[in-house]
């Protein structure tokens, strides 16, 4: 499978932009001169070694050294933390040095963000960049789980996969049929009321994801695959994160330059108020729901 050696020369000889970009990307990488990795041996290949596993640990300290060091470490950590608590101000006391940031958030929060829930105003208006990073963390987590746990269709399934399929259980179906409409309704309510009462994107999205998990567990992958398939998952997460980026960039730009933005604040207390907080809650909730459902499907069926 050796490629012809003339390939780098032909790339250098043609002077178009595509070939120069390709040369920059390749970093003068010659695929043929890389060392060939050794042939991959099977997982059970021990070299014929018959000694039991625990006596094979080579050249390390006796076991009690690690236990003693761990005990010393734990005791030092606990003592340090308890001493720190002793030096802290009293619990529940009104601190005179409550910093100006908190004062600013409470007194000017509602008129600046339009949200009655001050915490939602903080995480989605004052500190919206951190919430975007959190959504990215969730997306990265589900991507890592996808990479680690997805089984190709060529891999053989274990023999007991038929017995592990518990989706036709009568008790589960009756309970899910009774509970799931309430779960979805409650999830949507929590999601949409993030700026008026405790709730918001993360908790509402988790509830909706739990509802999807229940449907998938009780009725099998076919029914829930009609709601959230792999294509839907990719489209929804990408669109939600892109909408968050673009929408928040727009309000950052107009807010920093003193321009008038088309997303107003509205009257506090209405459902359609608080600027972009309601759409951002919906976007974050979609990402969280897809993440929770995706992680469940990866662990259960090893594929979407």
């Amino acid at each position: 499978m050796k490629k012809p050696k003339t390939q780098p020369e032909t790339a250098k000889s043609s002077g178009t932009a595509a070939s120069s970009i390709k040369k920059w990307l390749d970093f003068d990488l010659d695929i043929d001169s890389l060392p060939v990795p050794p042939p991959r041996e099977s997982a059970e290949d021990d070299g014929g070694d018959e000694t039991p596993l625990l006596s094979r640990i080579p050249k390390s300290a006796p076991r009690f050294v690690y236990t003693a060091l761990a005990a010393i470490c734990s005791i030092v950590l606990t003592a340090t933390l308890i001493l720190t608590v002793e030096g802290m101000p009293r619990y529940g006391e009104d601190q005179d040095y409550m910093d100006t940031v908190t004062y600013e958030y409470i007194t000017h929060g509602m008129e600046y963000t339009g949200a009655v829930n001050i915490v939602a105003g903080i995480i989605l208006e004052y500190r919206a960049f951190d919430t975007l990073g959190e959504s990215f963390v969730l997306f990265c987590a589900v991507t890592c789980v996808l990479v680690l746990l997805r089984a190709d269709s060529a891999d053989s399934q274990p023999e007991d996969v038929v017995f592990r399929d518990l989706s036709h259980d009568a008790i589960l179906r009756r309970t899910v049929r009774a509970i799931v409409p309430l779960v979805f309704m409650f999830g949507v309510y929590v999601l949409l009321n993030g700026h008026l009462s405790p709730g918001g994107g993360f908790s509402g999205g988790a509830v909706i994801g739990a509802g999807l998990v229940m449907v998938s567990a009780a009725y099998g992958g076919d029914v829930s695959g009609r709601i959230v398939s792999e294509r839907v998952f990719k489209i929804v997460t990408t669109c939600a994160l892109s909408f968050y980026c673009l929408g928040k960039s727009y309000t950052f730009f107009t807010g920093a330059n003193g321009l008038h933005s088309i997303v107003g604040n509205g009257t506090p207390g209405d459902i359609l108020s608080a600027g972009l907080i309601l759409p951002l809650n919906v976007a974050v909730g979609m990402v969280v729901a897809c993440t929770v459902y995706g992680i469940y499907r990866m662990f259960d069926k090893r594929s979407f």
Binding site: D160, F163, R164, L166, D169, I171, L172, A217
Partner: peptide
């Protein structure tokens, strides 16, 4: 119940 079913099977 579902966990116990899985363990039983």
């Amino acid at each position: 119940h579902m966990l116990a079913e899985l363990e039983y099977r």
